[in-house]
């Protein structure tokens, strides 16, 4: 209701009042929802940070601190812990291979989806997403058997292959929307100016798509970096950081858990934040 309502409308305000109430209530509900969802994400991260950045004694002590002590003790303890450095290096390697494979396979698929009409295109897009419909535990046992038979078990490449299947749908969808956003006419102009199809892709499409492809690569990296289940089942000696932490969850002291958690979350958060614009694009123009 505006303050300057005319005298003629004076008897009326009884009617719109409930509507205004509903609107106000709706606004409060919306705000409460936003606050709740933010808290849902931010509070665990906050607690993780506070404890990772406090001295081991503070972490185990009581009462808990709400402000981090900025003591590198927990992190130093974590990094010196037996096996952590190796696990970290394994994680980086697996994630890097996953990233290369996902983009190497996903980007051409995304390009084909955006540029060509072929029979079964809709089905293909559905199947790409369907790969995420199978729970990994269901596949883990047959995969483990298969990997042992082929000698891929407990290897960087073997685990990276599994992570690639997890990251691939996203790589395909992100690059699909990326390529769809680049006008076909630019490629056609390149053809008329003397390019082959491949040259047009390399000289015109790639420079325009590169930032988005990098974002998609980072996303694949993060998916592998955070993946626990396959890593825990398929590796024994060459554990990634997630599998290593899971394995030592019962036996390790509290500061180690927090520092390990922070070591996993921070790179993922930073990467995802850096490329968020391109990840939104996946849902934006991908609906064609």
């Amino acid at each position: 209701m505006t303050a300057g309502s005319s005298p003629a409308a004076a008897p009326a305000p009884a009617a719109p009042a409930p509507a205004a109430d509903v609107r106000r209530a709706g606004r409060w509900l919306f705000r409460a929802g936003v606050v709740f969802l933010c808290a849902w994400v931010l509070v665990p991260i906050y607690l993780l940070m506070v404890n990772a950045l406090s001295a081991p004694a503070d972490v185990t002590g009581f009462p808990k601190r709400l402000v981090p002590g900025f003591d590198p003790g927990s992190l130093a303890f974590f990094l010196r812990f037996q096996g952590v450095a190796e696990a970290l290096w394994n994680s980086v390697q697996v994630a890097a291979v996953t990233m290369v494979l996902s983009i190497g396979i996903g980007a051409p698929a995304g390009y084909a989806l955006s540029r060509f009409d072929f029979p079964g295109k809709g089905m293909f897009r559905l199947l790409v997403i369907m790969t995420r419909a199978f729970p990994l535990p269901l596949l883990a046992l047959p995969l483990a058997v298969l990997f042992i038979r082929t000698g891929l078990d407990d290897s960087i490449v073997g685990l990276a292959l599994v992570h690639t299947t997890l990251a691939l749908p996203f790589a395909v969808l992100i690059t699909f929307s990326l390529f769809s956003g680049i006008p076909v006419e630019l490629e056609e102009a390149a053809w008329t100016l003397g390019c082959t199809r491949l040259q047009a892709v390399l000289r015109v499409v790639m420079p325009l798509a590169l930032p988005g492809i990098a974002a998609s690569a980072v996303f694949a990296f993060v998916i592998s970096w955070n993946e626990v289940f396959a890593a825990a089942v398929l590796t024994i000696q060459n554990r990634t950081l997630t599998a290593f932490l899971l394995q030592s969850l019962d036996v390790s002291p509290l500061p180690l858990k927090f520092a390990g958690g922070a070591a996993l979350v921070i790179p993922a958060l930073v990467f995802i934040f850096a490329v968020r614009r391109y990840l939104f694009a996946m849902w934006g123009i991908a609906n064609r």
Binding site: P183, E185, L186, E188, A189, A190, W191, T192, L193, G194, C195, T196, V204, P207, L208
Partner: peptide
């Protein structure tokens, strides 16, 4: 023949000037 081998040049409705 491919467009590049036809000895043509084309001007497009939306210009297709390479943005990069």
């Amino acid at each position: 023949l491919a467009p590049r081998d036809r000895g043509i040049a084309m001007v497009f409705q939306n210009y297709a000037v390479f943005p990069h």
